[in-house]
Design a protein around this nucleic acid. Structure first.
Ligand code: FES
Ligand code: FES
Lengths: 147, 147
DNA sequence: ATGATCCTGACTAACTTAGTCGTGAATTCG
DNA sequence: CGAATTCACGACTAAGTTAGTCAGGATCAT
């Protein structure tokens, strides 16, 4: 379940869209600059998010990216699963659908509980929540500078 | 926090010791056979567990490995951290001690909660618990064969 | 048409994982 | 002693993942 730069950058990009995407599309370079993400890498992350229907992109001058749905209807769980693939800490916890009975060992039940709990928590957090938190973080950072 | 074969095999080996280690040392090859672990790989895992004080090994004929403490005093958390290193899902959640203020982004608090919860659950499970569960698993497997 | 912008896939370097293999050291037994 | 048994340790490798870069193409406003 490691969250690498894909997950972290991707979520930050979506938060950026939630915060600044109110007035038309936001350009990739802008997101990259604000969120400190390598521009050409962000390109791939946006492509993935587009494939999974989280963002809509328009080309040409004045183009950019925007969320396809209101920020409070997009949950962190789906975003991370889009960016990172399955978040299962063990292969035997992956939803297989193949019908093959994955091997089971004694510790599996603990991890099943942890995994379920984790998914529930991630599903309960929306982009709007995260954007609000980010606003607050920025506000307090500015405040501490001005002291 | 991915648990790879290291963590899975290592825990299974310790469960094996908890189950069969009552009467003197258990040999590596025996563990490997019972738990379906490559013998030469198990070697490394036992070395790690020895370094961290979970098992004691004796050489020569009749030698083998045994737990250094009663199985109900060894918790899954410490074992897995010995085998896999930090279980933190994000680098920014690692205990740094270096004093450098790791970067913080909006989603960190969710993961902090998930991580704390995970560690608490793992700390609450002992090798004895797992061994009991494994006994039960084996019993029911035998039962379903004999039907 | 031109220039801004997104879109796509090929490519790479560094790192991690899951082992194997060979040699050596300790211990017991005859 | 000497041989058999068992652990101990480090070098090595093959495959996969991560975190990108880069070049070139597609699309659209003007
Ligand atoms: S095989 Fe899945 S927890 Fe051990
Ligand atoms: S930097 Fe740690 S959660 Fe984003």
């Amino acid at each position: 379940m490691h969250i690498g730069t894909k997950g972290d950058y991707g979520v930050r990009a979506l938060i950026d869209l939630a915060m600044y995407g109110g007035e038309g599309p936001v350009q990739r370079t802008e997101i990259a600059r604000r969120q400190h993400i390598p521009d050409s890498y962000l390109d791939h992350l946006l492509a993935q998010l587009r494939r999974d229907g989280f963002v809509r992109s328009t080309r040409g001058p004045g183009g950019g990216h925007q969320l396809t749905r209101p920020a409070d209807e997009i949950c962190l769980l789906h975003v991370l699963e889009s960016l990172e693939g399955s978040l299962a800490p063990l292969p035997c916890l992956e939803d297989d659908e193949s019908g093959e009975p994955h091997s089971v060992c004694a510790q599996q039940w603990v991890w099943r509980e942890i995994y379920d709990d984790m998914r529930a928590r991630l599903a309960a957090v929306s982009l709007a929540d995260l954007a609000a938190r980010e606003q607050e973080r920025l506000r307090s950072a500015v405040a501490s500078y001005s002291i």
